[in-house]
Design a binder for these strands. Structure first.
Lengths: 202, 202
DNA sequence: CTGGGTTAGTATCGATTCGAAACTAATTCC
DNA sequence: GGAATTAGTTTCGAATCGATACTAACCCAG
């Protein structure tokens, strides 16, 4: 099977998994929005970051977000760092809505794969995402854990490592490291060292 | 990374690869339509099959196809087997349009993977597609080569194997075997035997 | 601290898309 | 022959989306 067929199969898998659209009163665009704000870190839970992630315009993204806010799935809170910026967070209603995410059909199918197959798939998808994003000049939205801007300073006293983003110069909590960030960028060469650093036993 | 994150990454990869929409004057829906009719076998190049593949209604699919016919990308020819049915085939214009398919960004990224990684990816995507399709009760659109309806009779005299679909009771040419079919169904158990039969050295 | 350039977000408008439903015509089944 | 089904089309209304214009806040230079 040639590369185009595989590419098309991936597109088909995504389309089929996205569901028949309206589930639990939410449109596909709204589901995508909820998913994004559930996974993005606090720097990226903005209209602009979501617009870039969803490959749409800020105007469209603003409309979708506004609808979710008015329906009680998201809360709107102005940023304390930037007076222009607004951060959106999931409400309890938003979180519980994700329990019925139509994309879970795909998640469960992934869960049925053998662990090594699953990891291989994850690696391949991540690599393809970076590659395609690079050729398009778009950010690839990875997690801080594998980002070249992650600064990890081992605090000798307590033994607890402390993290920070040296691009935004903001501290990062340990459980922030797996969230999506609009500023994600892979390090050019030492990927293995980084993955060993972050991927060790927790 | 949990299964939901991987699922979302796949959706993200597909969305990003689908392109910013209008390329060469074709909309995303039109690109999908062209891709489908380029890969579907002659039993599946119909409005209904495409509607099922694209997870939309026949009405919407009919509109999209009509647009492509009027713009010269597809030809419309009534079926000789069924007076209701209409088959659509790509014109030269349609074929050459696919040379600028925005999905090729993903295809090329797949081509850069190591061969074994690529094959593993193909297998995983195929399995996930079947699994998700099964839970939704939708056809999974595989190729005849791996379909349980493929009847393969080795013709002893010439040495050439001759193929047929024992569901539609129609002959199949050797180069039809890799096209998509709406009637695709995997055999329940002997998948390895089938893949060995079809996937051997060419 | 004023002014130009940039960025975050919003509002509006028009085109496109999509789904639901009604419809025609051909096929199948009893 | 007639009911039920299927392939395809059409129409209409709602939703989506992109382009554009706009406001407000930030940043930097002078």
């Amino acid at each position: 099977m040639d590369n185009r067929s595989i590419a098309q199969s991936i597109a088909q898998l995504a389309r089929m998994s996205a569901g028949d659209g309206h589930v639990c009163g939410l449109t596909p665009a709204q589901w995508n929005t909820l998913r994004f704000f559930a996974r993005a870190n606090r720097f990226s839970r903005t209209v602009s970051a979501f617009a870039e992630f969803h490959a749409t315009t800020r105007g469209t993204a603003s409309q979708t977000v506004k609808g979710l806010v008015s329906e009680g799935y998201l809360t709107r809170s102005p940023s304390d760092l930037d007076g222009r910026s607004v951060r959106f967070d999931l409400t309890d209603k938003g979180r519980s809505a994700l329990d019925h995410d139509p994309l879970d059909a795909l998640s469960e199918a992934i869960g049925k794969l053998a662990p090594d197959v699953r990891n291989q798939l994850e690696t391949s998808v991540k690599r393809l995402t970076e590659e395609v994003a690079r050729t398009r000049g778009k950010p690839s939205f990875g997690s801080c854990r594998f980002c070249c801007h992650l600064a990890c300073a081992l605090r000798k006293s307590g033994g607890e490592p402390s993290y920070a983003c040296d691009l935004l110069e903001q501290p990062l909590a340990a459980n922030d490291l797996d969230d999506l960030c609009v500023n994600f960028e892979t390090a050019p060469s030492n990927a293995t060292a980084r993955s060993r650093r972050g991927g060790g036993p927790s």
